[in-house]
């Protein structure tokens, strides 16, 4: 049985998601910021956390973006194998939604092409689209705008398997430490372990989509997440980099099988403006 979803529906949905993701900070992030405010000991750190909470309230009330860097439109698709897309090409429909959402929603356009010495494309397209074919007859679309400041502080490495969990931990800590105040802490740190060169980066990015406060289902990985968070919060960078206990709100790790010769690790740094909104059609 095939189910038909039209390109128009998809475009409308993507446009709405672009606006919503940029205007409304998720409840999980707001909750985490409030929790951080209670635990932060640094007065300057508290001041930053208060400003971020106030900022989220203003953005929602005025329907303006939480952050002026409304990012690259990263779009995740979970496309049911029984879905048939009609009325055009799926990726054109997604890009039309991004164009509409960013233009009509007064969001900043940040895409430049060609990458060396290029010009602003003017409508924030092209989106970066990741498609996964899944069982069923539904299409789930997640729009996750990703800012440049935090993305620039991200990193990947191909460790030797002998480096083990200690090597993973050292790389994550080194990446966060090196980033310092640049990616607008408090952070959400997405870590991908395993797979290969490109897979670990995608795992790290997907780790950022998990709601804050939800640990990895495997206890060993959940423990690694807790340990990494504690170590990161010992660095002292603090909110805004002004010093304090809260450098990260959460660490999310995602894993995949790896080659016997490699232990790939990627760290995708996310600022507090952790934006992602989903819809299932």
């Amino acid at each position: 049985m095939t189910r038909i979803i039209t390109c128009d529906e998809i475009t409308r949905a993507v446009a709405d998601l672009c606006r919503e993701a940029n205007y409304y900070l998720g409840k999980d992030v707001r909750g985490a910021l409030e929790g951080a405010l209670a635990r932060e000991v640094s007065p300057q750190g508290k001041d930053v956390l208060n400003q971020l909470l106030e900022n989220a309230a203003i953005a929602a009330a005025e329907e303006v973006p939480i952050c002026q860097d409304t990012g690259v439109a990263v779009v995740f698709l979970e496309l049911g194998q029984e879905v048939q897309v009609q009325g055009g090409y799926l990726y054109d429909a997604i890009n039309a939604g991004v164009r509409q959402g960013y233009t009509e929603g007064y969001l900043r356009k940040s895409m430049v092409y060609p990458p060396l010495d290029g010009r602003n494309t003017g409508d924030n397209t092209p989106a970066i689209i990741h498609t996964e074919i899944v069982p069923g007859d539904k299409l789930t679309i997640t729009v996750a705008p990703k800012g440049g400041g935090s993305e620039n502080m991200s990193a990947a490495v191909m460790l030797a398997p002998a480096a083990g969990i200690r090597g993973v931990k050292e790389f994550v800590l080194e990446t966060v430490k090196k980033a310092g105040p640049n990616p607008c802490p408090p952070l959400i740190v997405g870590v991908g372990i395993g797979g290969n060169f490109e897979k670990c980066a995608l795992l790290a990015k997907k780790a950022l989509l998990r709601p804050l406060g939800e640990p990895h289902p495997l206890e060993g990985i959940a423990a690694l997440e807790r340990d990494l968070l504690e170590s990161i919060n010992c660095l002292g960078i603090g909110p805004g980099g002004f010093g304090g206990r809260i450098t990260a709100l959460a660490v999310h790790v995602e894993i995949f099988a790896r080659h016997i010769a490699s232990l790939p690790v990627a760290v995708n740094i996310q600022c507090h403006a952790a934006r992602h909104k989903s819809i299932t059609l």
Binding site: G180, I193, L218, G220, I221, A223, S231, L235, G236, I237
Partner: peptide, 26 residues
């Protein structure tokens, strides 16, 4: 330099040791 001073003030040198137990996934 506030960023440097902040680290001096707030970083915790004795980072807790990881319990490097068996990790089924790794």
């Amino acid at each position: 330099d506030l960023y440097t001073e902040a680290l001096a003030r707030y970083s915790i040198k004795e980072v807790p040791e990881l319990p490097l137990g068996k990790d089924p996934a790794l």
